[in-house]
């Protein structure tokens, strides 16, 4: 994965497989560390499983005995001097948090988080997403629940005009708080 936002895309797939209908993604940049937090309300895992998911030979899939999503994300964060933690509770949900030292030479670029978020909204119109981006200059908060309130029941989130609006308004607001320069 050559962008942090692609790891996020991958972790979101885990949340969706876990049956989540709310996925909250927060990117915080404090000038030095970039903290990525993905929280879902999916089926969750018991403590023993949660402790083992960073092992590539632990996976819930049945087609094959390896799962690389979380291990790759962890390796990428650790290569910058950062870390990855997984907290989970059965029946409640899962939190995956990765810390990257953004100035480290091995840190991949954040990449297009907007593409990650919007593509997932379009492909999973029955799931709600919240996305926040925090920099020293301010914060951007986006939520499909608010968008749905305006659109009502008759205009779906994957309508092309709505998709264009989501991409533009997220990008504009992130640029206003100086987040564009760390993408």
């Amino acid at each position: 994965m050559n962008e942090i936002s692609l790891h996020v895309l991958d972790i979101i797939q885990n949340s969706i497989k876990a049956g989540a209908d709310l996925i909250v993604i927060v990117i915080e940049f404090d000038g030095e560390r970039l903290t990525v937090t993905i929280t879902d309300n999916g089926c969750g895992m018991d403590a023993e499983t949660a402790a083992r998911v960073t092992d590539p030979f632990v996976t819930s899939r049945t087609t094959r005995r390896v799962g690389l999503g979380i291990p790759l994300f962890k390796a990428s964060a650790e290569a910058t001097g950062g870390s990855l933690t997984v907290r989970s509770e059965k029946g409640v949900g899962t939190v995956v948090q990765a810390i990257f030292y953004y100035g480290h030479i091995d840190c991949p670029p954040l990449g297009s988080m907007t593409q990650t978020i919007v593509s997932q909204i379009v492909c999973h119109t029955d799931v709600d997403f919240a996305y926040s981006f925090v920099t020293p200059r301010g914060r951007m908060d986006f939520s499909t629940r608010e968008v749905r309130q305006v659109l009502g029941d008759d205009v779906p989130l994957d309508t092309p005009e709505v998709v264009v609006w989501m991409r533009e308004s997220i990008d504009n607001e992130i640029n206003e708080i100086g987040g564009g320069s760390i993408q």
Binding site: D141, F142, S143, E146, V147, V150, L151, G152, D154, V155, P156, T159, E161, V162, W165, E168, S169, N172, E173
Partner: peptide
């Protein structure tokens, strides 16, 4: 989210084509 007003416009414009 700042431009929710634009979204309201989009909703009105797309309602017809969506029924099709």
């Amino acid at each position: 989210m700042k431009s929710l007003k634009d979204l309201e416009e989009i909703r009105k414009k797309t309602l017809d084509s969506i029924n099709m």
